[in-house]
């Protein structure tokens, strides 16, 4: 009985940590620009795909990972420079469409540069499941959770202890004021895209041994990541983590105790309910409307 519940929780933890990593990327960009980047899932895909393709070509995993992270960051910066910055003053909806366009473009590019097959990476620490209280967990899942924790700590340090991080946070509160204080808003925007691309790539690499990857892998991850970020409260890193885990665990428990066919629906119903009572998500700030 308990072992069963524990196994469901482990299943939820594995998916949830993946969603949380995806959600964090949304949170970072939102924080500094109030842009929702629907191409976040594609960052994850590019990180995973380029690593998998390089490893398949004989590049050692650490080197491949590093290169993949760089490639993804480059894509992130290019996206910001050529697509987001020129439209910085456009309507929110317009920017959403731009990022959706970017995600379609990147998927199209990936299917030409690489292929349409599924690819995998070897698990970092082997495939021997760990036995805990009668339930099992793969070491790779711990890698995913671990990376999520490291990332959240690093982000906290960056935003609260470094000058540039504080500047980014300031920009998110009031762009004009930040600009008047001499903060380079453009630079902040670019760094936020580079950062979330880095995060996406790292996520893509640790997740690939579990979920595999192909040129369309970013769609689902983007969707779940967005859900996680909104559930947690936009722009809140901790919120994205909690949101991701909540979605993952809700899905696992729903398939365990209710119906596996409706597990995704259950997760969305929970999100809707939370939003009915907390219209800014679990940890979101109450925004004030400009009149």
């Amino acid at each position: 009985m308990f072992a069963e519940l524990l196994q469901y929780l482990f299943a939820g933890l594995t998916s949830g940590a993946i969603y949380a990593l995806a959600g964090l990327g949304f949170a970072i960009i939102y924080n500094s620009s109030h842009v929702i980047n629907f191409a976040q899932g594609e960052f994850i895909m590019i990180g995973g795909m380029s690593t998998a393709m390089m490893v398949a070509a004989g590049v050692p995993l650490p080197v491949a990972s590093l290169l993949a992270v760089l490639v993804t960051m480059l894509v992130g910066v290019a996206l910001e420079k050529f697509a987001i910055e020129p439209a910085r003053n456009a309507d929110v909806t317009t920017i959403i469409i731009i990022t959706i366009g970017a995600s379609i473009f990147l998927r199209g590019l990936a299917q030409i540069v690489w292929d349409k097959e599924f690819h995998s990476l070897p698990a970092f620490s082997g495939e021997t499941p760990l036995n805990v209280g009668g339930a099992t967990l793969m070491p790779q899942s711990i890698w995913v959770v671990g990376v999520a924790v490291v990332v959240i700590v690093a982000l906290w340090w960056f935003f609260n202890r470094t000058l540039f991080g504080k500047a980014m946070l300031a920009t998110s509160f009031n762009r004009l004021a930040a600009q008047l204080m001499g903060i380079g808003v453009k630079k902040v925007l670019m760094v936020s895209f580079a950062l979330s691309a880095l995060l996406g790539a790292v996520g893509g690499i640790v997740v690939t041994p579990i979920t595999f990857t192909n040129y369309e892998a970013g769609i689902m991850l983007g969707l779940k990541g967005f859900s996680a970020a909104v559930l947690g409260g936009l722009g809140n890193g901790m919120g994205a983590i909690v949101g991701g885990l909540a979605v993952g665990i809700a899905e696992a428990l729903a398939s365990g105790y209710l119906s596996s066919a409706y597990k995704d629906a259950v997760a969305f119903v929970i999100i809707l309910f939370v939003l009915f009572f907390l219209p800014n998500g679990l940890f979101g700030k109450k925004g004030t409307d400009r009149v």
Binding site: A83, I100, G101, F105
Partner: peptide, 18 residues
């Protein structure tokens, strides 16, 4: 190249004709 061109058109239109 369909997806690339399609995505590119979407982005381009919104950037230049917001």
């Amino acid at each position: 190249y369909e997806a690339m061109v399609f995505g590119g058109i979407m982005m381009g239109t919104m950037i230049f004709l917001p």
